[in-house]
Structures are given as structure tokens and as C-alpha cells.
């Protein structure tokens, strides 16, 4: 099997369609007959990354690459970037405004969730430019 890749644009503040990219990613993995454990991890990681693009970024793209050894989810946005990544990674840290919190977002658990469900997690950010997150989930026999 060669590498398979898909890209999904995610718009800022588009709560109407929020979650669609992750749902499509999940459907692709199901069609490939992947194991439910790896599907759950990918779904969680993709969802948290997608919601952060909707809530905190100016918009961006989520992509998935599937190769024989792993699934890689990448979220890349067009800004505003994260000033203090270490702080942003802390459980409970959130800058979400009240109207967003009322919807149940802003627990400050998205980035920690992403890290937890990845075997390899990379976050890079440049203020004024944007944030890039790469989550790698290794496939095991049976996935």
C-alpha cells in the first residue's frame, strides 16, 4: 500500500461545520478497516486540533497521511500563533472567551488530549505567522 493523503480546510469561527473534518477522517479510517482503538485516538486528536483551528486560529488546514507504519495528522494555521507553548500545553490553561466557554469549550484539555493520544507529538508556533501540530500514531499488528 502506498501513502494516502487527504487535506481538509477549516475556517475560523465556523461552528456550523466544526467537527466535519474529523468525521471525514474517521470515515476514511473505517473504510480502510482499521482497528477501533487507533480510530478513537485519531478521532480525538483530529477533533481537538480542528476545534482549536475554529476557536483560536485565523483558519487553517487539517491533513492526514496514512502509510504502512503510521497515521500522521497535521494541523497548520495562518496565525495568530502561540506565545508561550509550554503554558498552552498545561492542563486547564485556556484563553477561550466566555461565549466559547458557555458552549463547553475552554477546559484547556485539547492540547494535552492531543499529546496523550499520539505516539509522537510536535507543536511549533511563530507569533504573527501560525501554529503547526503534528501527531503521529504508530500502527501495530492488527490495526
Amino acid at each position: 500500500m502506498g501513502n494516502i493523503s487527504y487535506e481538509f480546510p477549516v475556517a475560523k469561527d465556523d461552528f456550523e461545520r466544526a467537527g466535519e473534518a474529523s468525521s471525514k477522517i474517521k470515515k476514511i479510517l473505517r473504510q480502510l478497516g482499521m482497528d477501533s482503538g487507533i480510530i478513537r485516538r485519531v478521532a480525538i486528536g483530529a477533533y481537538e486540533a480542528e476545534m482549536n483551528l475554529v476557536i483560536h486560529s485565523l483558519g487553517g488546514v487539517i491533513s492526514i497521511t496514512i502509510d504502512p507504519e503510521s497515521i500522521i495528522i497535521t494541523a497548520e494555521d495562518n496565525g495568530p500563533g502561540i506565545e508561550d507553548i509550554e503554558l498552552a500545553m498545561k492542563e486547564g490553561y485556556s484563553t477561550a472567551p466566555d461565549r466559547i466557554r458557555e458552549m463547553g469549550f475552554g477546559a484547556g484539555m485539547g492540547l494535552p488530549n492531543m499529546k496523550k493520544c499520539s505516539d509522537d507529538f510536535i507543536i511549533e508556533s511563530v507569533v504573527g505567522k501560525g501554529t503547526k501540530i503534528v501527531m503521529k500514531m504508530m500502527l501495530k499488528d492488527g490495526d
Partner: peptide
Amino acid sequence: VTIQTHTNIIAVATLL
């Protein structure tokens, strides 16, 4: 069980 009612709860339920 939740008091949240906006469309995103369906995305969460579907994904999980």
C-alpha cells in the same frame, strides 16, 4: 448526560 445543546455535541457523540 449534558446541558450542552449546540451542534458540536453531535460531532463529539459521533466521533466517540
